[in-house]
């Protein structure tokens, strides 16, 4: 078989369908355009094998509605761009297979709690940068600046490194923020993303901040004491981060501070 032929066959599958027609309802609104009003619009999409919502939305944009706004970057579940509300639940659209909706009807809405850019696209970037600045999501160490890059690195316990990695896996998709009850009531609430970031730097021996320093960030009702423990964050986190455990841990630390 020639390479050319082999390559043709690699895409042959995309023409296949499962025989099912999906009904995809999308909340549409472009705040940039003065005439635009929010409305639900339904699109019919022939389902293909292994179809994800990423593929279905691109189908709609190419064939039915070229102005449809949505965000994908990696389309592999690792960059966090494509958080949206899928049949009532915040999740990553890129790794959600359409086959999992056995009725063939999928309703998509933008993540609440973020500024809407248009249709399914929201401004998580602005929100997450503000969280980073508020938490100070970087290593605080006055001596770091003088470190000699030619010299052997500082040692770290292998288990500590692994533990930090576990807490560093957040992809800032915003699902936890959208699923949070407290977030709806308190505009300034830090939210699970912020708490996880605190937990990550708290666990890091390279960061020299004390519990008193952290109290300044966390120690009020917009911080860890505001959490009503509804645990929407824990339920919807696509990376299965230990939100419940870490919020409880931070709360205890702050009570003791």
């Amino acid at each position: 078989m020639s390479e050319a032929k082999m390559n043709v066959s690699t895409t042959a599958g995309s023409g296949q369908t499962t025989g099912r027609t999906l009904k995809i309802n999308i909340l549409r609104f472009n705040p940039q355009e003065p005439d635009s009003k929010p409305e639900m619009v339904t699109y019919k999409v022939p389902e293909a094998p292994n179809m994800t919502i990423f593929i279905a939305l691109n189908y709609i944009r190419e064939n039915l509605e070229p102005s449809l706004q949505f965000d994908f970057v990696c389309r592999a579940g690792i960059c966090g761009s494509c958080g949206m509300v899928i049949n009532g639940r915040p999740d990553l659209a890129c790794r959600t297979l359409t086959s999992k909706f056995f009725l063939g009807e999928i309703t998509l809405m933008p993540l609440p709690a973020f500024e809407l850019i248009g249709d399914l696209s929201v401004n998580t970037g602005k929100f997450m940068r503000a969280v980073s600045e508020r938490v100070g999501s970087w290593i605080h160490d006055e001596e770091e600046k003088q470190k000699d890059l030619d010299a052997l690195e500082e040692r770290m316990d292998p288990d500590t490194a692994d533990e930090i990695y576990e807490l560093d896996r957040c992809i800032e998709c915003g699902c936890c923020i959208s699923a949070c009850g407290t977030m709806r009531m308190r505009e300034q609430f830090l939210g699970a993303r912020g708490f996880m970031s605190v937990a990550r730097f708290h666990a890091d021996p390279r960061d020299k901040r004390s519990d008193e320093d952290w109290y300044e960030v966390l120690g009020d009702d917009d911080g860890v004491f505001g959490c009503m423990s509804l645990m929407g964050c824990e339920d919807t986190c696509p990376k299965d981060l230990p939100h419940q455990t870490k919020i409880a841990y931070l709360r205890r630390r702050m009570v003791d501070t």
Binding site: W138, I139, R155, M156, D162, I164, F201, R206
Partner: peptide
């Protein structure tokens, strides 16, 4: 090697020798 060490100072939790 310098870049790896710099990033260690900036917070990358590089896996460690056990």
């Amino acid at each position: 090697p310098k870049a790896i060490r710099e990033l260690a100072g900036w917070g990358v939790p590089w896996s460690r020798v056990r």
